[in-house]
Nucleic acid binder design. Structure first.
Length: 568
RNA sequence: CGGGACGUAGCGCAGCUUGGUAGCGCGCAGCGUUCGGGACGCUGAGGUCGCGGGUUCAAAUCCCGCCGUCCCGACCA
């Protein structure tokens, strides 16, 4: 490609709207342009990188025995109504009607359609297992689109669906996908971790997230310093601290006027927050649930919710306290009746002689101890995990990192085949439900995630597997015939050798071309200019490291190819 | 949806407090000089000042409403 013809105009300044590095640089380098919030035009450079990601994904999916097909984006609402997702999916679903008033939607994911398709085409146990996938734009009216391509309302996704006769089969299909996913992300050059994730509303049992490490990541994960344990922060279970004996201090009431928060109590009494006991009030249906955590910790409400699922757990509202006779800000677990369930996080076992609310306005107690002074019905894992907590497998220190979820795989089991009544005919002549798995990869998100991981202050630094072009031939002096001829020859030779190249033949000054080459992030730059030609050399630069070298003009192509081979 | 910021030329911004002529830089077009790390000079094109209403002789500027964008929180590839 001649850059004089490339449909791409780089921006000299950072767009005001972009905050995240990937968003900023993909806009500046003309890979994408925004149409509206969370919806982006993919420009020619972006297309090339996206195609390369797709090619990697296709290769690995095909290699794993999955078969590509494509179901429509425009979907009938009917199957969605049958699975209940027409209502359950909520505002995130892009809904529309055709001229006859029939409900339709833009596909956010395709379990329904795929399951129905497989049921029609592959109705026999002899057909199984089967795994089908597609690479298609997905539509989700996100609450908050963010960070450009990292959370779009329209995004390119590979989604695969496996159908097996039984659980064992599903687990095998899952394993095969798991390994294919590792190869995909390895080939994309991503620094990532695989964590066991919160099953969330997708349901099913086992599921794993593939998380690319990035400072702007929206998802937190914990990792043991010894590297043997990783989990989503929502799913992570730290090792409980060693239990200590109850303290011996007498329980005494102390005046704490106006101190309705842990901080205020700690400040008034001159103690640290961790010696206080935080008493959180919840409603699980009609049931009142009290959750105890040390004062310096937060309750993980997702974990709490899971304990009572499907009953919804809600935090007490202002009115609930008065209505049920609790002094908001001064609640303690002492003297609670049997109608109240008292749950405590495991970490509560590690403390004694607590300072906690006295259940009266402006009053706290010191020296509160379990059993003697209050009751704990059950110890559960209920606290928000934090840095420095202990690894459940070896007691190492847990660290928290940020990441971008680029892949998520689920063992769905019967979750979708059941409501859809998606059956196959088994050997014994009975109808049985398909045991499903589903597997997603965010293609457009990978592009952004890689940009997050591979950039510097000058621009993008694509791994060669994803770069829109591998080598940029920079024509430094357009007015010099010899220089031009050499650059043209090198460019032609590179192409003849199968190297994806651009020739920067624009009438700009060399400085502009260098800056753009760095911004766009071609792995290798070859500069052909008057200065070098006189000495019989060209200059090469490896974008990844900034390393520069020279090569004789005659060996320029070989040198560029060798440098490319050495590039990450 | 809650909290915060913002909307003026393709991009980055000033002007708004104290109403009256719409401006700067980059980019874009032409000419000339320059030419290996985002050159310089001259000339030029390009704007319903987000939209609608109101106040006023007069609104980018003041008032009301709406829309859009970004950032922080609850959802997700």
């Amino acid at each position: 490609m001649r850059l004089s013809r490339l449909f791409a105009r780089t921006l000299r300044e950072d767009p005001a709207e972009a905050e995240a590095p990937s968003h900023r640089l993909l806009l500046r380098a003309a890979f994408v342009r925004k149409l509206m919030a969370g919806v982006y035009t993919t420009m020619p450079l972006g297309m090339r990188t996206m195609h390369k990601i797709e090619a990697i994904v296709r290769r690995e999916m095909d290699g794993a025995g999955a078969q590509e097909l494509r179901v429509p984006i425009t979907l009938p609402a009917e199957p969605w109504k049958r699975t209940g997702r027409w209502d359950a999916y909520g505002e995130e679903l892009f809904r529309l009607q055709d001229r006859h008033g029939r409900d339709m939607l833009l596909g956010p994911t395709h379990e329904e359609v795929m399951a129905e398709l497989v049921e029609v085409e592959f109705p026999s146990y002899k057909d199984l297992p089967v795994n089908v996938y597609q690479i298609e734009w997905k539509y989700r009216d996100e609450l908050r689109p963010r960070y450009g391509l990292l959370r779009g309302r329209e995004f390119l996704m590979k989604d695969a669906y496996s159908f097996d006769r039984d659980e064992d089969g599903m687990r095998e299909s899952y394993r095969i996908m798991y390994e294919a996913y590792e190869r995909v992300f390895d080939r994309c050059g991503l620094d990532y971790v695989i964590v066991e994730a919160d099953p969330g509303t997708i349901g099913g049992g086992v599921n794993h997230e593939f998380m690319a490490l990035a400072d702007v990541g929206e998802d937190l994960f914990v990792r043991c310093e010894n590297g043997d344990y990783m989990a989503d922060t929502e799913a992570a279970t730290p090792q409980a601290p060693p239990a200590v004996d109850p303290g011996s201090a007498p329980m005494i009431e102390v005046a704490t006027p106006g101190a309705a928060t842990i901080e205020a109590v700690a400040a008034q009494l001159g103690i640290s927050a961790e010696t206080t006991l935080k008493t959180m009030m919840y409603k699980a249906g009609e049931q009142i649930v009290v959750v105890l955590v040390p004062g310096d910790r937060e309750v993980n409400e997702k974990k709490l919710g899971r304990l009572y699922f499907p009953t919804r757990v809600e935090r007490f509202e202002e009115a609930d306290f008065a209505q049920r006779g609790f002094a908001k800000g001064f609640v303690g677990p002492q003297g609670l009746g049997d109608e109240v369930t008292v749950l405590a996080d495991h970490s509560v076992r590690g403390g004694a002689d607590w300072v906690t609310g006295a259940n009266r306005e402006d009053l706290h107690v010191t020296g509160a101890n379990v059993v003697r002074d209050f009751r704990v019905d059950r110890y559960e894992d209920l606290a928000q995990i934090r840095e420095g907590d202990r690894c459940p497998s070896d007691g190492g220190e847990l660290q928290i990192g940020r990441s971008i979820v680029v892949g998520h795989i689920y063992q769905l089991g019967l979750k979708y085949s059941q409501p859809l009544e998606a059956n196959y005919l088994d050997e014994d002549g009975t109808q049985k439900l398909y045991v499903m798995g589903s597997y997603g990869i965010g293609i457009s998100r990978i592009m952004a995630a890689v940009a997050e991981q591979f950039h510097d202050e000058d621009g993008l630094k694509w791994p060669k597997a994803l770069a829109p072009y591998e080598v940029a031939v920079i024509l430094a002096n357009l007015d010099d015939e010899k220089v031009t001829a050499e650059a043209e020859r090198i460019y032609a030779d590179l192409q003849a050798r199968g190297v994806e190249s651009v020739l920067d033949d624009r009438s700009d000054r060399a400085g502009v071309k260098f800056a753009d080459a760095d911004l766009i992030g071609y792995p290798v730059q070859v500069t052909v200019g008057k200065r070098g030609i006189e000495a019989g050399t060209v200059d090469l630069k490896l974008r990844a490291t900034g390393e520069r070298s020279t090569a004789p003009i005659g060996a320029a192509v070989d040198a560029a190819i060798a440098l490319l081979a050495a590039a990450p």
